[in-house]
Amino acid sequence: MKLIIHPNVDQQRLQRIREAADEMQVVACSDEATATREIQDADALYGHVTPSMLAAATKLRWIQCPFAGLEHILFPELINHQSVFSNMRGIYSEVITEHVFSLILCFSRNLHLYVRQQAARQWKPIGDLEVEITGTWGQSVVRDADRRCAPVRGATLGVVGLGGIGSEVARRGVAFGMRIVAVDPQPDAACSAIAALWPMDQLSQLLEESDFVVIAAPQTPATVGLFGKEQFQQMKSTAFLINIGRGAIVHLDDLVNALETGQIAGAGLDVFEQEPLPPEHPLWQLENVVITPHVAAVSVQVAEGHMQVVTENIRRFSQGKELLNVVDKRRWY
């Protein structure tokens, strides 16, 4: 059997791939021309495949994609090709979930406002603290400042897309004492702690109930533009939107309007319809928005997880075993 790599990888990763491949021939291709020639009799490919490469393949049975998202990878001929296609889903779940809860806690404790006040050297609690706290009674009266915080414990967390990342978000939410509701196109793999798991056509129910809405869905033909004016109108005015899925899922113009008019309380955004987000975009000026530049998956832990998936799948392919992370190419996930 023969495995080709395109484009080439560094020597350390190449050595680990060769070790996993055992007796399978491994050919590293530095350019598309070489890859197009070598793929003619290849059984497997790790990396990027182009239409011309795929057209030259005569016995290709497996492609290991180096990414989780497939919106920039798939093309019609590849979707229709007989080869099995696997991706990198699962390796980002823990680190992206940490990013999600960084944003949730930020909004819960008004850190997005306090960090701006720090830059202006302002000592100013968010909300009124005029009610005196005495040594006799302590904090026995609910003040305006108390109401301005959004408690996490007891809040409803709505998860849109219950794949690897969404499931990890749900598990962490349970640990924080949150009530979890979720929607997914295949609602049959819920963890027992989820209060409700619905098909996608019940998204409105999730939005109406949730205090924090986390978009953890991939970009597919079914999810592009999923969030617009109608969905923001269905959310609570006190709710926060977190998007670490894909930017194309949310119409930014509608989101800006919802934020400016108070339809929703705020948004934590790591992905956008247009990246980089243009400096003149109104989102930059909104105090109830936290923007991060598509860095939710940044971690020193990811690279090793990536290589473990690659090498394990190479071993499995060479031994004729079931592969990890097989994708339904027609659904894009």
Rank of each mutant, 00 (worst) to 15 (best):
residue 217 A to M: 12
residue 223 T to R: 08
residue 207 L to Y: 01
residue 202 Q to D: 13
residue 214 V to K: 01
residue 203 L to D: 04
residue 233 Q to E: 13
residue 215 I to M: 12
residue 230 E to L: 12
residue 213 V to D: 07
residue 232 F to C: 10
residue 208 E to C: 06
residue 231 Q to N: 05
residue 223 T to S: 15
residue 227 F to Y: 09
residue 221 P to C: 12
residue 200 M to D: 01
residue 200 M to R: 07
residue 233 Q to W: 04
residue 217 A to T: 13
residue 208 E to F: 00
residue 209 E to G: 06
residue 235 M to Y: 01
residue 211 D to G: 02
residue 203 L to S: 07
residue 214 V to P: 02
residue 228 G to S: 14
residue 226 L to D: 01
residue 208 E to I: 00
residue 232 F to H: 08
residue 201 D to W: 07
residue 220 T to C: 10
residue 234 Q to F: 01
residue 229 K to A: 13
residue 231 Q to M: 02
residue 213 V to A: 10
residue 232 F to W: 03
residue 207 L to R: 04
residue 205 Q to I: 10
residue 204 S to V: 09
residue 230 E to Q: 15
residue 206 L to Y: 04
residue 205 Q to E: 14
residue 221 P to N: 11
residue 231 Q to R: 10
residue 225 G to M: 06
residue 235 M to R: 05
residue 224 V to H: 09
residue 233 Q to M: 12
residue 205 Q to F: 07
residue 222 A to M: 08
residue 219 Q to E: 14
residue 202 Q to W: 09
residue 203 L to G: 08
residue 213 V to K: 07
residue 208 E to H: 08
residue 222 A to S: 12
residue 208 E to N: 11
residue 220 T to S: 12
residue 229 K to Q: 14
residue 218 P to N: 05
residue 210 S to P: 06
residue 235 M to W: 01
residue 208 E to V: 01
residue 201 D to P: 08
residue 214 V to R: 00
residue 209 E to I: 06
residue 227 F to Q: 05
residue 225 G to R: 08
residue 210 S to K: 02
residue 201 D to K: 09
residue 230 E to K: 15
residue 231 Q to A: 04
residue 200 M to N: 06
residue 202 Q to R: 15
residue 232 F to S: 10
